[in-house]
Amino acid sequence: MMNFKINFHIFLTFVLPSLLFLTVIPSGYAQESENSQQKSNFWSHVHFGGGLGLSVGSGYSNIMVAPSAIYEVNDYFSTGLGAQYSYVSSRDYFNSHLYGLSLIELFNPIPEAQISVELEQLRVNNTYTQFNPEIKDNFWNTALFLGAGYRADNVTVGIRYNVLYKEANNVYSQGWMPFVRVYF
């Protein structure tokens, strides 16, 4: 029950305000457009991107899809939402389905540098197949990534750290994670 309270608190604190921001801003622009007979430029500030991943080996598979969208508030700050689905399988050992949402905040103090904060909430469904009967481990995992990267146009390459990382969660193998972020 406590985990639900923490997750609900995170939802109220971070996700709900961003959802409201992303829904109120377009309607405000739409009203302005109706009143002034000009087209809204909201969508010119929205950028889509995300990540795709595929890793296969001898008895191992990892497939990941993570679309996202950000709203460029100004030249220095962007905010957005992302979704993620991952399937990981190791033959005769385990398989895992992970899915969830993330809140993304990007800060560009200079055009070449990007600082990021990403709050991620994932549902994790692990099945350990090496045991008879199989063991299922299903839980929610919250990650808070703080990152920095080098940016060139719409591509950023960097590293991020999950400040909420716990080895016992069986989600990420370590707290540090390199990233490549692309938005169009």
Rank of each mutant, 00 (worst) to 15 (best):
L20A: 10
Y99E: 05
M64H: 04
L144M: 14
Q84F: 07
S58P: 02
S102M: 07
L101H: 00
Y161N: 02
W140I: 07
V171M: 10
P133R: 04
S78M: 03
A168L: 02
E105L: 10
P111R: 06
Y87A: 11
T156G: 07
H47D: 10
N162I: 05
I110E: 04
Y76I: 01
P111E: 13
L20S: 05
N132L: 08
F42Q: 05
S116G: 14
E118G: 00
I110C: 00
N7C: 09
N125D: 15
G82M: 07
N108E: 12
E105S: 12
P109Q: 02
E72D: 13
E167H: 13
K5I: 15
Y60R: 13
F184Y: 15
E105N: 15
F77E: 01
G59R: 07
K136E: 12
Q37G: 09
S58T: 12
N126K: 11
N108S: 11
S44W: 03
H45D: 14
S173H: 07
N141D: 14
F14T: 10
G82F: 06
Q130T: 05
E34C: 04
E32D: 08
R160C: 01
Y71P: 05
V171N: 11
H47A: 12
P133W: 01
F139M: 07
L164K: 02
S173V: 08
N3L: 12
Y172A: 13
P178G: 06
T23V: 10
V117P: 01
H97A: 07
E72I: 04
E118Y: 00
Y183P: 03
N108G: 01
N169H: 13
K166Q: 15
I104D: 11
I63T: 13
G49N: 10
N132P: 00
G100L: 03
R151E: 07
G57D: 09
L101Q: 01
